[in-house]
Design a protein around this nucleic acid. Structure first.
Length: 425
RNA sequence: GGAGAGAUGGCUGAGUGGCCGAAAGCGCCGGUUUGCUAAACCGGUGUACCGGGUAAACCGGUACCACGGGUUCGAAUCCCGUUCUCUCCGCCA
């Protein structure tokens, strides 16, 4: 959510930014509601002021004046109440519009309506050259007895899966690897709830219960299954005022992620690429309220993601996401796309966003410093350390051998306990 | 799941209808005193919104004592609902 004063003072820039991001929004109505809001607040405050004066006089008033004052007090109570109702209606309409406005955009982010306008800013690693026809992860996993997709579908439906045998070790190893890396980078480690209140989801920028929701919600409660630990790590400091001296804060969270993938059918539904549940280690950052600080942590988060994939020996490219694909909260977003030989294309494995104060404003996460008066909204950032299923696909497909075995990257061997997964005898 | 107690400023904690945005202490900031540090003393110290001020300083107003409703001329204080915390009992990985 953007600041109302900012919107009204920068109406043209906000309107243009909506166009760049492909958000149909006309700012005129919002501006007129904002004006109504001011007027109603001023009128309400004046009435309450009189109300206080009147009721303050009553205890010392002579008996013959008291009746009149009480009557005026009653009258004022009605007037105040009417103004409050009017104001509540205006503010609710105003907020509904305010929430439609996406975050402002980093000046260097590429402008364009869709994926094709995103920019590749770096590539790392050499795509493996196979002297055989490479298999995709489904084939590999089934030959190596690493997954039971039918079992997952039977028990929970399409999009769920059982990992088996070394794949279990591989998932745990990826978690360990990521967590160890983040601890060394100074992150505070968390395991987080896998559910969160709807208001937290909304604060982060998800719509838990709309018709096109990507979120599983629990009936008769205000809880939803989280789509990422970004939700729980960002919600952790909701409504708090932090000492700016304690920023930046770097949190890492391990959670399950649940996504309905509504409308995602038909594309890349094979195997474990697009699933309804997966395990992920997520980074979340809180910085002070200036873009220099949050951009710096953003770069660090991307660097860590690259370290992680370089350590796994997986070729990837870094994408600077264009305006049309940024979503609501992101000011700028970098994705890592890993090379996936089975698909013969790149697949998204991480995503790192600087959300500036867009999330913190709705979540009420502020900070205080002797350097300025009052409080300011912190900046929040998030990035994937390891999304287990996608990372596993990249490992299996890039490190496969002619005989159908898969070489485990050295970085994971301490936890997997072997250097290769071979077909069962 | 059952029974009870509670939620007040950064913290501790007083306050049961008007003189309470809220005592006191701690902490923090500024000052005085002082070989240094400490102590002592004096002063200051919440947030949001609306308006004024070119802006900062600052000034005026309103709201906020977990959250939401209600009673009343007037609510931190009374009533109802919700959430959360603690204690005891039961159950349980």
């Amino acid at each position: 959510m953007l600041d109302l004063t900012y919107i009204t003072e920068n109406a043209d820039a906000v309107q243009q930014n909506c166009r760049d991001r492909g958000v149909a929004f006309e700012i005129g109505e919002l501006l007129s509601l904002a004006e109504q809001r001011r007027t109603l607040i001023a009128a309400g405050d004046a009435l309450r002021h009189e109300q206080k004066e009147v009721s303050g006089k009553i205890p010392k008033a002579p008996a013959d004046e008291r009746g009149g004052l009480v009557a005026r007090g009653k009258e004022l109570r009605e007037l105040v109440s009417d103004k409050e109702k009017e104001l509540a209606a205006v503010e609710s309409a105003l907020r509904a519009r305010q929430l439609q406005i996406p975050n402002m955009t980093h000046p260097d982010a590429p402008v364009g309506p869709d994926e094709s306008h995103s920019r590749t800013i770096r590539e790392w690693g050499d795509k493996p050259k196979f002297d055989f026809q490479p298999r995709d992860h489904v084939e590999l996993m089934s030959q190596l007895d690493l997954v039971d997709l039918e079992g997952g579908a039977k028990v929970a439906g399409h999009g769920f899966y059982y990992l088996k045998n070394e794949a279990v070790l591989l998932e745990l190893a990826l978690v360990q690897y990521a967590v160890a890396k983040l601890r060394a980078e100074g992150f505070t480690l968390f395991t987080t709830p896998d559910l969160a209140r709807d208001e937290v989801l909304e604060g982060i920028g998800f719509n838990p219960r709309g018709p096109e929701t990507q979120i599983y919600s629990v009936q008769n409660t205000d809880l939803s299954l989280v789509a990422t630990a970004e939700i729980t790590l960002g919600g952790l400091l909701k409504d708090e005022i932090l000492d700016a001296g304690t920023l930046p804060r770097k949190y890492a969270g391990l959670s399950h992620c649940f996504r309905t993938e509504a409308g995602g059918h038909g594309k890349a539904t094979r195997g474990i690429y697009r699933v309804h549940q997966f395990t992920k280690v997520e980074m979340f950052g809180y910085t002070g309220p200036d873009v220099a600080a949050s951009d710096e942590l953003h770069a660090t988060i991307v660097r860590i993601e690259e370290d992680i994939f370089q350590g796994l020996g997986i070729p990837y490219r870094v994408i600077d996401t264009c305006t049309g694909d940024l979503g609501g909260p992101a000011y700028r977003k970098f994705d890592l796309e890993a090379w996936m030989p089975g698909r013969n294309e790149y697949g998204e494995v991480t995503s790192a966003s600087n959300c500036t104060d867009y999330q913190s404003r709705r979540l009420g996460i502020r900070c205080k410093s002797p350097d300025w008066k009052g409080t300011r909204f912190v900046h929040t950032l998030n990035g994937t350390a390891v999304a287990c299923t996608r990372a596993m696909i990249a490992i299996l497909e890039n490190h496969q051998q002619a005989d159908g075995s898969v070489v485990i990257p050295p970085a994971l061997r301490p936890w997997v306990g072997c250097d290769r997964i071979s077909p069962k005898a």
